[in-house]
Simulated assay, not measured.
Amino acid sequence: MTAPEKAGCARTGRRRRPWIALVLLGVPVLIALLGPWAASAAPSAEGALPSQPPGAGHPLGTDVLGRDVLWLVLHGGASVLGSALGALLVGMAAGIPLGLLAAGPRRAFDGTVMRGLDLLLAFPGLLVLMTLAATGHREWYWLVTVAGILQIPAVARLVRGAALAPGSRTVVEALWMQGHGWAYIHLRHLARELAAPLATDAGGRFAVVLYLLASANFLGLGLPASSPDWAVLIERNSDALFTQPAAVLVPAGLLTALCVGGNLLVDRALARRRRGR
């Protein structure tokens, strides 16, 4: 293959990547958003034999409780997407101000904030969720809140590191000397500097949060066993993987597509931003 042909293939590959990312991310997101509405045309969720393969009346078969898998998949995405986004927002909403506080001019705050966050970072996520479940706090909002709190140390460290970078500190010190206030420096200058690393981290952290929440639900620490959540479906039907694989592979594939598609889309957006600069 000649050099121009290779270059053409590379350009074609770059053009296709956004569509791959959009499809991977768009399918589970659309199912999560529009699934409950579309489920009105799906078969009834109950009344069939358990672990039946796909067939007439049940396009994806039934699960171990005799519920229609298609109906469950259409209803299970909302809890997955909502919980992961909620936990991510909790982590970033608390982590960004703490990181900026640690990177501020008062160095005493740096040690106090970061040592406190190091203590939180030492707790294993699943162990915390197991303790939460053992105390009877199994409601979804407890799960989302605790999963979000566990992300605060990593987000704060990222923000602090970006704000303390040599280039950022030079400009910040110059702005302080010019008499600009905290809001101007942090909400206008540093916000632009932090946008790219935060966007990159958000894509990867969404996958981390999704993995943590899915693991909790898979281990029975989160949502009840009757929930149509995709992770719960995988756990409930794992024993029937070889007799009714659709009940496991379909929700597992949607979870994978959600993580991979989100990361690819963020990477593509950042690459375009760098080329624009």
Results as ranks from 00 to 15, higher is better:
residue 134 A to D: 08
residue 24 L to E: 01
residue 134 A to T: 07
residue 193 E to C: 12
residue 24 L to K: 01
residue 269 A to Q: 12
residue 90 V to C: 01
residue 12 T to K: 08
residue 36 P to N: 08
residue 188 R to K: 13
residue 3 A to M: 06
residue 172 V to L: 13
residue 256 T to D: 08
residue 75 H to Q: 08
residue 273 R to N: 05
residue 253 G to K: 07
residue 184 Y to G: 13
residue 239 D to W: 08
residue 1 M to G: 11
residue 236 R to P: 02
residue 251 P to I: 04
residue 132 L to T: 12
residue 247 A to Q: 04
residue 184 Y to E: 15
residue 113 V to N: 07
residue 84 A to D: 08
residue 84 A to I: 06
residue 173 E to Y: 11
residue 269 A to L: 14
residue 188 R to N: 11
residue 232 V to T: 03
residue 43 P to E: 03
residue 95 G to F: 04
residue 126 L to R: 00
residue 62 T to W: 10
residue 53 P to M: 04
residue 274 R to G: 07
residue 145 T to K: 10
residue 214 A to Y: 14
residue 216 A to T: 12
residue 185 I to S: 03
residue 268 R to E: 15
residue 186 H to D: 00
residue 245 P to T: 00
residue 76 G to N: 03
residue 111 G to N: 06
residue 96 I to P: 02
residue 57 G to L: 11
residue 173 E to H: 13
residue 162 A to H: 02
residue 109 F to L: 10
residue 33 L to D: 06
residue 102 A to M: 12
residue 43 P to C: 05
residue 69 V to D: 00
residue 135 T to C: 14
residue 81 L to A: 04
residue 38 A to N: 01
residue 18 P to L: 11
residue 121 L to P: 01
residue 118 D to E: 14
residue 260 V to P: 03
residue 196 A to E: 07
residue 31 I to N: 00
residue 4 P to M: 04
residue 141 Y to W: 15
residue 111 G to M: 06
residue 180 H to P: 12
residue 247 A to N: 02
residue 262 G to N: 13
residue 268 R to H: 15
residue 264 L to E: 10
residue 26 G to H: 03
residue 192 R to Q: 15
residue 129 L to K: 02
residue 200 T to I: 06
residue 127 L to C: 12
residue 137 H to L: 15
residue 271 A to Y: 13
residue 179 G to V: 09
residue 269 A to G: 13
residue 109 F to Y: 07
residue 223 L to F: 12
residue 254 L to Y: 11
residue 190 L to P: 06
residue 98 L to G: 02
residue 177 M to C: 12
residue 141 Y to R: 14
residue 167 G to S: 09
residue 25 L to P: 04
residue 262 G to M: 10
residue 252 A to W: 06
residue 230 W to I: 03
residue 168 S to I: 06
residue 208 V to Y: 02
residue 121 L to E: 04
residue 15 R to Q: 15
residue 232 V to D: 02
residue 187 L to Y: 12
residue 75 H to G: 02
residue 47 G to L: 05
residue 11 R to V: 05
residue 232 V to E: 00
residue 241 L to S: 04
residue 177 M to V: 15
residue 184 Y to N: 15
